Simulated assay, not measured.
Amino acid sequence: MSLAPAPRAWMNPELEMLRDTARRFFETECVPHQDDWARQKHADRGIWRRAGELGLLCAGIPEAYGGGGGGFQHEAVICEEQMRAQVNSFSLNVHSGIVAHYLLVYGSEAQKQRWLPRMAAGDLVAAIAMTEPGAGTDLQRIKTSAVRDGDHYVINGAKTFITNGLHAGLVCIAVKTDSQAGAKGVSLVMVEVDGLPGFRRGKLLDKIGQQGQDTVELFFSDMRVPAANLLGGEEGRGFAQLMQQLPRERLLLAIGSATTMQRAVDETLAYVCERQVFGAPLMALQNTRFKLAECQTRATVARTFVDDCVARLAAGTLDVPTAAMAKWWVTDATCQVIDECLQLHGGYGYMVEYPISRMYTDARVGRIYGGANEVMKEIIARAMAR
């Protein structure tokens, strides 16, 4: 029996009801399909519309735009339940927690009315395209260009590792509108890609983990996009927009990792209490108890830190360095805990039928995406040196 978690200051009865809805959805309508989705490398398209019907999309977007009218806490609860169920074959974080908020904060009224209601309903899946084959974390050096031609931009380039890339009908693309201006030459353009000449999706990428997630490359060849799709109404604001919103993305990653960490401890506790070694439960060995005590302590510290960050983001006081701390420390700790938990499973931990084995491969990317953890440490160090 695991230790009871401490009460969470930001929870309330409404959020508990949302948690119940999200838990039932992920456990009953997603978990049974995980193996099929992993084999086909993507979730079924209909699951997005079902999530929309249940109010699990754009929960933090105002009702005026079709959203749930909640706050970041609502998105945090949904994120936790998705990761507790280990359903990572489609990213609600990218769709609802990231792209929808770029539109909400920087979009024109026309842009918000055009795209957010369809996103909330699941009729339109969203993705964000930042990473390029030759420019991963270094967004200042992206090569994808957007050249103004009358009332349109002509976009050329490629993006890689795009989450939700197969189903996305709306993509927020980071482009260079001025190739000589460095960070000040970066802009964000919203693109409705379905049937758009010059747009092409690459093949679904093979990954060691999160195999059901539709991750693809995107290619743009003289792709014409209305200039009215520029986000923020002025060229060159894209890098600042990305930097302002990345703390939200990084906290969502930390929330998911903290939840996965606790799930790993819970799975392992159940296993070692049942597994017999030398005529006694594996839990009877002091090494097992000490290792699990260490893992539970890390999981508790992670949750406490993340809960504080959730409250601060909801209050508008979460700063960039603290979000970076949460992202790197929690994702690193999750990988450490899962490794210890897999070891306690022995040979069975290496078998795909045990959840811990999938957690092991699924969690590893957390130290890479959303900004590599080495970059997170650089962000923190620069803030310290000011």
Rank of each mutant, 00 (worst) to 15 (best):
H95R: 05
N287A: 14
T137G: 00
D149M: 07
A135K: 10
I47A: 00
E81P: 07
D307A: 09
V375H: 03
A228E: 13
A254G: 15
R118N: 09
Y354R: 13
E274S: 11
C30G: 01
E192L: 04
E80G: 07
T28R: 06
E353R: 13
R19I: 02
A284Y: 08
D307Q: 06
K291F: 02
S179L: 12
Q296A: 12
R367G: 00
R118C: 04
G122V: 05
W10K: 09
K327S: 06
R224G: 10
A293E: 15
T297R: 15
L124E: 12
L116G: 10
G212V: 02
M243V: 13
Y354I: 04
E234Y: 01
V225C: 08
Y102H: 14
E29N: 01
H152M: 11
A280F: 12
S89A: 13
Q82W: 03
T131F: 04
G69N: 10
A227H: 02
G236V: 09
R364N: 00
V193C: 03
I380M: 15
A383Q: 02
L231N: 10
K327F: 03
L318K: 04
N12R: 08
E14R: 15
M351R: 13
C309G: 13
T300S: 14
A227D: 02
G232D: 02
